[in-house]
Design a protein around this nucleic acid. Sequence first.
RNA 1: GCCCAGGUAGUGUAGUGGCCUAUCAUGAUGCCCUGUCACGGCAUCGACUCGGAUUCAAAUUCCGACCUGGGCGCCA
Length: 436
Amino acid sequence: MISGFSMRTPIEKVTPETGHAKCVGFVHEVRDLGGLTFVLLRDRTGILQVTVPKKKVSPEVARAVREVSRESVVMVTGEVKPTGKAPGGRELVPSTFEVLSRAGTPLPLDVAEKVPAELDTRLDARFLDARRPRVAAVFQVRSAVLYETARYLHKHDFIQITTPKIVAAATEGGTELFPIAYFEKEAFLNQSPQLYKQMMIGAGFEKVFEIGPIFRAEEHNTTRHLNEATSIDVEVAFADHQDVMDLLEGLVVSVYEHVAATCAAPLERGGFEPVRVPKAPFTRLPYVEAIEIAAAGIDEPIAYGDDLSPAAERAIGEAMGGHYFVVDWPSSIRPYYAMPYEDDPSICKAFDLMHPRMELSSGAQRVHQHDQLVRQIAARGLSPDSFEFYLRPFLYGMPPHAGWGLGVERLVMTMLGLQNIREAVLFPRDRHRLVP
RNA sequence: GCCCAGGUAGUGUAGUGGCCUAUCAUGAUGCCCUGUCACGGCAUCGACUCGGAUUCAAAUUCCGACCUGGGCGCCA
């Protein structure tokens, strides 16, 4: 009878001194030498060698070991014995060996990874793929990133909010939205909490953040875009772009430090190098200097007023060698809500936080005066009437404010050197993938 | 959306008109093996995405569909 899982010993806690132990996990590998069989038992903390001398164990144990398949779930009890012949200097000799759930054969992919599997194959069988220590490490890091982000912001007196993901209209512009049926009305999945967090500035919350999903219906097909992503969104009242850049770089450094401090073991099991904590402050590179660096580094022409292409970002990233901000962007290529400089309205108080490989975050001081917002919307050829829902809070007292949005997947991806952003999501949604 | 490259056993691959009754590895199944740690040995199993065309002959060439990867655009 199965009982007492709470009494089991995590594999990383099994030492030569453990004595009697109960361990549970997956059968990572079976090596049958004839009279002697080695079963590698894996839980999320590591791998333990179970050594089975067939003539010295009970017939029931011998039969269970003979019949077990790779990746079956088993519970094993027995004596832990110190030995120099086994990994970790200890092995478990079973007195009971119970198969709790037998894995079918053949497996859709090789968890032990003697043969690699393509990402598409892996995502189709993500439940198996995630058993691999490398994949498990990614999501332990992602969890640590989210934990430290929330802790850091709470510690800085932020209020965590959650805002609707089902919205009535395209409010921010610049991207395609997913239409959905909302009873008798048409609705959309929200592209960004931008306007809601600004409303909470209008509500006097002063410092708000949200960690939540964002949806983009863009038909891109790259290693750095998702149609459903997770965004860390921050908005701060009585702050300018410099203030929120300081906050952002402090957060990024703190997140790296927390991952370095808490995820060393899973990263090592997963075959990752230890994370290297970036040094603050990050360079603040004016846009005009950025395009000069880009122009010198790439063949394609680049002019003032162009956005930075991926090739340009890589060229600048190579020159910068670490995280950096691009600041003082031309107002013409930033959204209507970015605050122009008072002395030169052709540039604005917007910024991007860059990792050498790609953009991580965008932010700005926002326009907080209703009249100015209306003018900037109109100047972009948009109709202020269709922004009524957005503009209304600005009529009744809106503090000056600034904020940013930071992509969780890109942060994890660049932190760990992942080649494809889909690796940083358990169940990614891209142009073609809707299941699992 | 545009462009490029692909689709061969469960997985990863080799194979550019006949030598393919399709390579190798891993896996699965059975047998042997008491110190493996990518265990080893023997045997067996298992695949050319779909439809059409060209040809005496197609995994291989052509057309279409579907699917996948990547670059760009857009975007974060």
